[in-house]
Structure formats: structure tokens, C-alpha cells
Design a protein around this nucleic acid. Structure first.
Lengths: 305, 305
DNA sequence: GTAGCGTTCTAAGCTTCGCTTATGCCCCTT
DNA sequence: AAGGGGCATAAGCGAAGCTTAGAACGCTAC
């Protein structure tokens, strides 16, 4: 479902935030490395795109209107989320030398690493971090080979003589779109019932699917797929549209559950837990140790509520 | 602190999400109303801006690389936050006729209304909602005059014969930047101590400042301002930079507390609560009733933890 | 009161970027 | 073997955005 046009520009939203902090258009322009007329035009266009007055301009500077203040408040989470994206993608460059080389499973890399790196950057500015994604085996391999300083794996205990530490617990949850009958269901789901239902799943080989299959296998059951999709996003979109139930990591659906787009269905009698552990080899450097401490800090519980 | 250049385009991120859902560049192009070469160019540029390969192109369609999947996951919160911004700003148009006319105090309008409207839109598509912002008195006036169907006010009990209902409780919290000494403080803050400290505040007349002043007045104390700033954002930025403690609504600093940019300092003996109430006059229409139900639903507790 | 500084808008000119149309190649399917 | 879907390339056009330059306005200090 594409965005409605027209869409405000990220740089213009950022510029508006700067105006609110600095008090004048020209100061904000300077901070962004553009000229004052350019900044003025961008803000005028932003007002036009949003259809509201954002600034009260005066020859002594510019103040935000109440609508402008609200827009700044609404823009802040957009820009924060963008920063996470930039932190994550920039870590994915195969940079030659980095002060910290991470390796992580998909779930950890996608949902946890950017916020950890954000906190790390908040404390020590100039740490260049690289990130490699892979399954548990390949992450363990990178760490064992010394090609990664610190790794994060799911489920299995680390092989060999790697040091490890439990970081947090993840849990798979059954989710459906808000329009699905199960969204209003009160009874707890039984393993049997889940196995009789066609589910939205990743292709064979996905770690999440494997955990689900093993949990069902303990009851002598097998997964039935309604549709095999290529990405977590595709599964979430399909489930949200009511295409059926899906089983995903609680970390992956935290946002959608909060916004109400997806509803978790309580489920009983299945071992859908998995532990996320940090692994490393030898002695940790100072930056790696700091990241480990951040990652093992308090986290919102990924419960099934 | 401006964004680093270059910044990815929102429409390109949205396009990437569509590719991940639809499985091909040309299908995504069609969904966005642009031609296939244009979509191809945008995605190529996005890859260049982010510095990573996002797509595995083939003559049978395109699949996301692992890095592409992660990018989609990271883009999703950006786009969700953007949708909230668009919902909020579009409600601020003074539209001639709307199926629901809201009035709300700044805090409610900024931090709660967009998510309520998002949920409302999720259930009933075509409700056009308008939003007016103001202080408690003006909101009550709009509702009493029949120029708003439903209002949300803070603190005071609604005047006159308006119907009302408690929606949630808000709380003011003392926050400091992560580098401030109080961030690592263990002792609880006393009213006396708070009054002896110069604080970052809005100008006189702000509702938040008034609540703080009244709470201190109960102890015979007065607020001391270190700096008077024009917007909540400016205060948060200054506090985050370590300029001093600020006192803000828990709703306003929820994001920053989660990200660690701001730290709440426990505080004892002050009445920093305020109740947020919905107010209306006469009989509620179906859309207004639905929004009221959404607003009075469960919410994350705005505690002082 | 006047000079000066900082703020804003306007205007003109230029460059650059992005989209569309048209075309060719490749691979899978029938 | 032929057709269709999907992606890339090339050319041309149009528009959008930035910079430089100039002018008006208001506050402040002398």
C-alpha cells in the first residue's frame, strides 16, 4: 500500500526541527550547509505539502506556530527511526577496518543491533562498527575465526570453546490481523489446533520456521503452510491483511502489536522460547565489552501477553 | 544536529517495501504509479545512497538480499511514524466539513491523537477528521459551542454542563541528559532540592509550567528557570545536551527515555499528576463514540519509574 | 535620532536531477 | 519454438532546487 502523494521531504522535516531549536531560518540554514533562501523555500514547500502554517516569520527571527510545534513533535520519531536505519545500513558496509566487527543472526541484527549501536554512539562518538548477518553457524564461525569480535546467536548453545553470555530471551508468537476471527478469540490455542491451521511462513530453512517445526514435532505434529513468503515484512503484510495466522518472533511484531495492526493469540503447550546469546573468543576489547554491557542491559520483556 | 548527507528518499524506501511485498520492480512501480525504469533508477540510487546491495535482480523478478530485508525492517518504523505525521497534519487543516471535529490540548494532540486516529482509520476507512489545538478553556469552549464534537482536556474538571470521562492519567517527570550527574543519582529528589535547581522551562503561561508551579507552591516554593525555551523539542534538545534538568509530561519524553537520550529522576512529595478527560456536549455520534472508546482503551502506563 | 546588524523575501539564471518513451536482451513457460 | 514477463539502457524533455544579488523591515546601541 503505497504512501499518499505528496510526501514531505526528510531533509525539510529535519530543517524544521533545527528552526525550532535555533530560532531562525538563517541559523538553521547555516547548520545544514545551505543558504537562507534555499531553507526558506524548503520550509515554504513543506507548509504547502502539509497544508498548514508552520512558522510565524518576522524580521527578528521565526517562531513555530502551535501546528508547527506539533509537526516537530511528530517529525521527531520519523527522524529517530531514520537514524536507526542509517546506523544499521552503514554498519552493513564491508568496511576495511572497524573498531568493532559484529556478527548477528537476522532477528538480532534487524531488531536489536541498531538501537544498541545508537546507545554506543551516544557514549563514544567515533566507533566505526561493521555488521555481518548470518545464521547461527556462520556467526559462530566468524567469531571463532577471529573475523568478528562479537557475535549474537539464537537458540543453540555455541559450539567449541567460545565464551558466551545470555543476552535476552525471545519468543515466537502467533499473530493474526485485527480482522481475523482469532483476534477476538478468548480460548487459548492448543498445539493441535495450530497444526491443523494453514499458516503464513517463510520458506523452508528459516530459523523461525525451524523452531516452530521442532516445537510441534514434540507433539508429533507438523506445520501446514498456507503461503510461503520471502520476507518477514511480506508475512506481516499478509497477516495484517487477514490472509491467515503467522508465527513470528515477538521482537519482529512488537511495533505492529502496539499499533494494533497485528494481534497475538495466546498459545499453550508449545516450547516457542529461544535464548539469544552473545559469543566471543578470547579477550574482549573495550568497545566490544561496552556493547556487550549495553546488549545485556534491561530490555522490554518480549512476552506473549 | 542536522542529518548526515545523503539521506534516502521516503518514496524510495516505500518503493523498496513494495518490492518486498510484490516480488518485482515493475509490479511495485505499477503500485506507485510510476514506470518501471523510474522505479529501477530510484532503487539503484537508494542502493548507492545506503552503500549496500538491496536487491538480487533477475529476469524473473527481484528478490531482496539479506541486507535488503533488514533495510525493509528498518524502513517500516520510519514509514509508520511518517503516517502518524500525515494523519496528524492532515487533521489540522481547517476542513469545511468533517465527519468528526476534535479539539484537544497540545499534549494530547501531539502525543495521543495521531495514534487514535490511526486506529480509527484502520476500522472505518473514510472518516475525515479535523483537529483543533488549544488550552483547556478554549477546548471546552469549542465543545460547548458545538464547534467541536469531542474534546480532550488536561487537569481541570470541565466547566458547565459538559459530559466528561476520564481517559488516562498523565504525569510530569524530571528528566536530565544521560551525561548529567543526576542521571546516575540514586537518592529520590525532594521538592526543596528541585526548587533550588535552575530548570529548563517553557515561557510563563504554559500548562506544564503551571502544574509544576502549583505543585511547588504547595510547599511554599517557587520555580527557578535556567533558560526559557519556545518549544518542547527545544527543551528536550537542551536537556539532552546536558544544559540542565527539565520537567515535562511523561508522554512527551517516552521516546527519549526509551532510547536513553533522557533519564527520569525519581521525585517525591510533589503532586505532578494530571488527569486527561474527554468532554462532549449532548449525544455522541457513532464516529465520536468510537474514538472515545479507542482513547479510553488500555494505554501504556505513563509512570515515573 | 541614526547607524548598523540581523532577519526576511524576491528575482534571475543556471544546473542538475528525475521521469517518460522506446527499445533490446534474457529467462522461464507453454 | 514462440510468447510473455521482467529488467536494463538510451535519448530527450521538463521541472524543481540552489546560488548569487538586491532590497525592505525591525531591533538595538550609540
Amino acid at each position: 500500500m503505497p504512501l499518499p502523494e505528496p510526501v514531505p521531504e526528510l531533509t525539510s522535516l529535519d530543517l524544521l526541527v533545527s528552526v525550532s531549536e535555533l530560532g531562525s531560518i538563517s541559523a538553521a540554514a547555516g547548520a545544514h550547509g545551505i543558504t537562507q533562501p534555499a531553507a526558506s523555500m524548503r520550509l515554504r514547500k513543506l507548509e504547502q505539502v502539509l497544508g498548514i502554517h508552520l512558522l510565524e516569520r518576522a524580521t527578528t527571527g521565526s517562531r513555530l506556530t502551535p501546528a508547527g510545534e506539533a509537526t516537530v513533535e511528530w517529525a521527531t520519531p520519523v527522524l529517530h527511526a531514520l537514524e536507526s536505519l542509517l546506523v544499521g545500513t552503514s554498519a552493513l558496509h564491508r568496511s576495511a577496518r572497524s573498531s568493532l566487527r559484529l556478527a548477528a543472526s537476522m532477528t538480532v541484527a534487524e531488531y536489536l543491533v541498531p538501537s544498541w549501536l545508537g546507545k554506543l554512539a551516544g557514549e563514544r562518538g567515533g566507533a566505526s562498527v561493521s555488521l555481518e548477518m548470518g545464521n547461527t553457524a556462520s556467526v559462530a564461525g566468524l567469531v571463532a575465526d577471529g573475523r568478528a569480535d562479537l557475535g549474537f546467536i539464537e537458540g543453540a548453545r555455541p559450539p567449541g570453546r567460545l565464551s558466551f553470555r545470555e543476552v535476552l530471551e525471545d519468543e515466537l508468537v502467533v499473530v493474526v490481523g485485527a480482522s481475523h476471527p482469532w483476534a477476538r478469540r478468548r480460548r487459548v490455542l492448543s498445539p493441535d489446533e495450530l497444526a491443523r491451521t494453514a499458516l503464513l511462513l517463510r520458506e523452508e530453512g528459516s530459523g523461525t520456521r525451524q523452531v516452530l517445526a521442532e516445537a510441534l514435532a514434540e507433539h508429533g505434529l507438523e506445520v501446514v503452510s498456507a503461503m510461503e513468503l520471502g520476507s518477514t515484512t511480506a508475512i506481516k503484510a499478509a497477516a495484517g491483511a487477514g490472509a491467515g495466522p503467522a508465527v513470528l518472533s515477538a521482537l519482529a511484531v512488537a511495533d505492529e502489536r502496539e499499533s494494533g495492526a497485528l494481534v497475538a493469540v495466546p498459545c499453550e503447550g508449545l516450547r516457542l522460547h529461544r535464548v539469544i546469546r552473545a559469543v566471543w573468543s578470547g579477550r574482549l576489547g573495550p568497545v566490544a565489552a561496552r556493547l556487550l554491557a549495553i546488549s545485556a542491559g534491561r530490555h522490554p520483556v518480549a512476552g506473549q501477553g
